[in-house]
């Protein structure tokens, strides 16, 4: 299995507080991975580093076959390179319709001139409809996304991520605040997505992780505590001590 993203020896300090401490992490193509850990374990900061929002004090973040370093790239270029990110809170553009949201995310030219003269082709519109069907929003295309329910917004955001056609998807607590049915749907979408690309899911909820049925990485105090199947890590004494045992 070839490596898509390799994070090695990364550390970040905020005002003396070490949020990430010598963290190393790898993920291959088409792999589903769950990252769990208690509050303050550095899950969100880890995502911030990969997506370029936070610059680490030391360490390397290597991406893709050509092994480019992500540390010098801006958020936008990292996103263009194929890393999509879903935030904890659903963040869609609430003043715009579902269709506009998806069109904006659709993999296309990102330069301002290209965008200025862009008019959606037939193919683009079809793709949007397909995606909308996939996330169950086919009938809501012209509605403003601000009017959608919480779960629908989460799906829309996942749909936007899929529209970006990223090679790596970083998903932060996708199931938060969802009804059980919505959770199930979300799991399906993620598992489906992981067939063609790498997906990293940060999640609190053990049940949700179990349903994903994938390799699990446990973070604690900014570094990897354990890695393996869910059963493997839940039987690890360290993990029980710091996380599950509480």
């Amino acid at each position: 299995m070839s490596t898509l993203l390799e994070v090695s020896g990364v550390s970040v300090t905020f005002d003396g507080f070490r949020a990430i401490n010598n963290l190393s992490f790898q993920i291959g193509n088409a792999e589903l991975r769950a990252v769990i850990g208690p509050n303050g374990a550095g899950k969100t900061t880890f995502m911030d580093i990969v997506t370029g929002k936070t610059r680490p004090d030391e360490g390397r973040v290597i991406w893709g076959e050509k092994s480019v370093s992500l540390l010098r790239m801006s958020e936008a270029t990292i996103a263009q390179a194929g890393i999509g990110r879903k935030f904890q809170k659903p963040t869609v553009f609430e003043d715009q319709s579902v269709q506009e949201n998806l069109l904006m995310a659709l993999k296309n030219k990102r330069g301002w001139l290209g965008v200025l003269f862009y008019r959606p082709s037939k193919g683009d519109l079809e793709k949007v409809e397909e995606l909308a069907a996939e996330i169950g929003l086919k009938d809501e295309l012209t509605r403003k996304s601000g009017e959608l329910s919480h779960g629908q917004k989460q799906w829309l955001e996942i749909g936007m991520l899929l529209a970006q056609e990223p090679r790596l998807l970083l998903v932060d607590e996708p199931a938060a605040g969802m009804t059980p049915q919505e959770r199930e749907h979300t799991t399906d979408i993620l598992v489906q997505a992981a067939k063609t690309r790498a997906v990293v899911v940060v999640e609190h909820d053990m049940e949700f992780v179990r349903r994903l049925n994938c390799k699990v990485t446990v973070l604690h105090e900014g570094s990897v505590l354990a890695e393996g199947s869910l059963d493997h890590v839940t039987s690890n004494q360290d993990v029980i001590d710091v996380y599950l045992g509480r």
Partner: peptide
Amino acid sequence: GKFGSVIRGIRDNEARVRFLGYSVEV
């Protein structure tokens, strides 16, 4: 058009636009 979408996106949520791969500064 889409340019309008992007700039309105920047108005409401700059970071999100950035993570969609648009260079907000430009």
